[in-house]
Design a protein around this nucleic acid. Structure first.
Lengths: 234, 234
DNA sequence: GCGCACTACGTACGCTGTACGTAACTAGGA
DNA sequence: TCCTAGTTACGTACAGCGTACGTAGTGCGC
């Protein structure tokens, strides 16, 4: 009966295997992989304890031997995808290296579209997250500043990438989720917006829409946001 | 039986009152206020259709006459708090005005800690959100740039504020939610982190922790992040 | 070899969003 | 003026959720 009490612990400080009892049937990596597979295919909402257990081929409650709370399952998932970051030998040009980091993070988030939603400093201390952070700091070796500033820079870049991709994904996801077609949705929203803007209450918004800038190049917007942030530090 | 079909519509383009049938017992504002009250007091997780209906004193399913899906309830909440933004006459100094906007947004998010979690471009077109956006653009009148750039600037400032406050809140919330004390939590996490860092695998992280910078002034960090972003545009 | 810590898992509880059926009500058109 | 169609109101029901708890069975450390 012991060992089931609510003891304060990060899941990473809990040993995966204690020695006593039957051999665990799965590793944490197995569990994380299963959860990530489900989230990638069917969205974060499909990740439930029952579903993950089903994927692993075990009873629902057995999962609680490995993962005491669902939040820990999220932590496992975040660590697993953090491990997908490619870590290279810093080039000596920290600006270029950080741009590369940002692009890789963005690609990672597009591969795992649930990632921005879980992004939080709470999950920032898993083993693979630490490895990633260390790599960012290594890229910043040529940048002459106290570590406090470097941390702020990394946080800023990560924040911008997260915000940006979250927006990309939210707009994309919404049209896929809704029970009516994308054209209908856009038409309704545009009609509403047009009515609002045409009311004359928002002259600058109206001017903004009238400003013919052609189709928005989202890629370029991302690039600009990134360089602006980095320039703010150089 | 008609009218219950899945018709594509933004809730804002659906009239609040059509004329036929009994007088509605509540306005959208009533519903939004109730939901916001619950979320402020007990967190976003406590906001359920049943709970809101209970707060309003009506049956659960009656709420669906006003709010077709739960996501629309969120949209009402976001609009309600967007209306709390103070809109002033622009001073002519767009830099100062945007800093003021950022501070107000941060204060707003601290008043409604669930706000960053719901932040998404999806909710960016409610009446009060449009009013807020128009105000930001008015503040940017002295900034000589195409509206596209102004929009990017506003998005960037909002993004930074959201990310920053989300982190503030996540760390604060976590300690309040957990079933053990803050000291225990911090001790466990620090012990784990210390063990990792002491392993020698993360030399720069170790150096960063060793760098004695005194207690971190979060207020100053926020200020720096803000001015850096604004400087990137000036 | 004994005992204990661990794994495994079924059952159950209270919660969620919401589809659907039914009854009461009221404003617009004939 | 009356009829009827569109709305409001709301109870019931269903599938799914996280997880507390009880009960077996298993194998390592003493």
């Amino acid at each position: 009966m012991a060992g089931r009490a609510a003891v304060p612990e990060v899941i990473w400080s809990r040993p995966e295997r204690t020695g006593r009892g039957p051999r665990p049937a799965f590793t944490r990596a197995d569990i994380a992989a299963a959860a990530v597979r489900i989230a990638d295919a069917e969205g974060l909402g499909a990740v439930s304890m029952r579903r993950v257990a089903g994927e692993l081929g075990c009873g629902t409650m057995s999962l609680y031997n490995y993962v005491p709370r669902k939040e820990d399952l999220y932590e496992l998932m975040m660590d697993a995808v953090s491990g997908e970051h490619e870590l290279w030998e810093p080039s000596g040009d920290w600006h270029a290296d950080l741009v590369r980091v940002a692009h890789q993070t963005r690609a990672l988030m597009h591969r795992h579209t649930w990632l921005p939603r879980l992004m939080s400093p709470v999950y920032g201390f898993s083993p693979n997250a630490l490895r990633y952070l260390e790599h960012c700091l290594a890229c910043l070796d040529p940048y002459d500043a106290p570590y406090g500033t470097k941390m702020e820079l990394v946080a800023m870049v990560n924040g911008v990438v997260t915000t940006y991709v979250a927006n990309e994904i939210a707009t994309a996801e919404r049209t896929r989720t809704l029970p009516w077609s994308e054209e209908q949705e856009n038409a309704t929203r545009l009609a509403y917006l047009g009515r609002q803007v045409a009311s004359g209450a928002y002259p600058r918004l109206a001017a903004s829409f009238a400003e013919d800038a052609g189709p928005i190049d989202l890629e370029a917007v991302f690039e600009r946001a990134l360089t602006r942030v980095l320039d703010g530090f150089a």
